[in-house]
Simulated scan of single mutants.
Amino acid sequence: MLGIFKEKLVNAPKELKSPASLNSSNNSKQTHEILQDFISSNPSNAFYMSFGNDALLAHSPSNNSFIHHRLFSGVENIYCVFIGCLNNLNKLIKQYGLSKGTNEAMFIIEAYRTLRDRGPYPADQVLKELEGTFGFVIYDHKDGTVFVASGSNGQIELYWGIAADGSLAISDDMGLIKGSCAKSFASFPTGCMFHSEHGLMSFEHPTRKMKAMPRVDSEGVMCGANFNVDSQSTNQMMPRVGSEANWANWGSQA
Rank of each mutant, 00 (worst) to 15 (best):
M49D: 14
M49G: 11
M49V: 15
M49F: 15
S50Q: 13
S50V: 12
S50F: 07
S50T: 14
F51V: 07
F51D: 01
G52F: 09
G52L: 09
G52A: 09
G52N: 09
N53I: 10
N53W: 09
N53Q: 15
N53M: 11
N53V: 08
N53G: 13
D54L: 11
D54T: 05
D54K: 10
D54V: 04
D54A: 12
D54E: 12
D54F: 07
D54Q: 10
A55D: 01
A55G: 00
A55F: 02
A55L: 07
L56E: 04
L56A: 03
L56D: 06
L57D: 00
L57I: 08
L57H: 06
L57P: 01
A58F: 02
A58L: 01
A58S: 06
A58M: 04
H59V: 00
S60R: 00
S60W: 01
S60D: 08
P61Y: 05
P61G: 06
P61F: 05
P61S: 04
P61H: 06
P61D: 05
P61W: 01
S62Q: 08
S62R: 07
S62W: 06
N63F: 15
N64G: 08
N64Q: 14
S65V: 15
S65D: 15
S65P: 12
F66I: 14
F66E: 14
F66V: 14
I67L: 13
I67D: 10
H68F: 12
H69K: 11
R70S: 08
R70W: 05
R70E: 04
R70P: 00
R70D: 03
L71H: 03
F72P: 02
F72T: 05
F72W: 07
F72S: 06
S73A: 12
S73R: 07
S73Y: 05
S73M: 01
S73E: 03
S73V: 01
G74A: 14
V75Q: 11
V75W: 08
V75L: 12
V75M: 09
V75Y: 12
E76L: 02
E76V: 06
E76P: 00
E76T: 09
E76D: 13
E76K: 10
E76H: 07
N77T: 10
N77D: 13
N77R: 13
I78H: 02
I78R: 05
I78C: 02
C80G: 03
C80D: 00
C80M: 03
C80H: 00
C80N: 02
V81G: 04
F82D: 03
F82W: 07
F82Y: 13
I83N: 06
G84Y: 03
G84A: 07
G84D: 05
C85W: 04
C85S: 11
C85E: 11
C85L: 10
L86C: 07
L86F: 13
L86P: 04
N87L: 12
N88W: 10
N88R: 11
N88A: 10
N88Q: 11
N88E: 10
N88L: 09
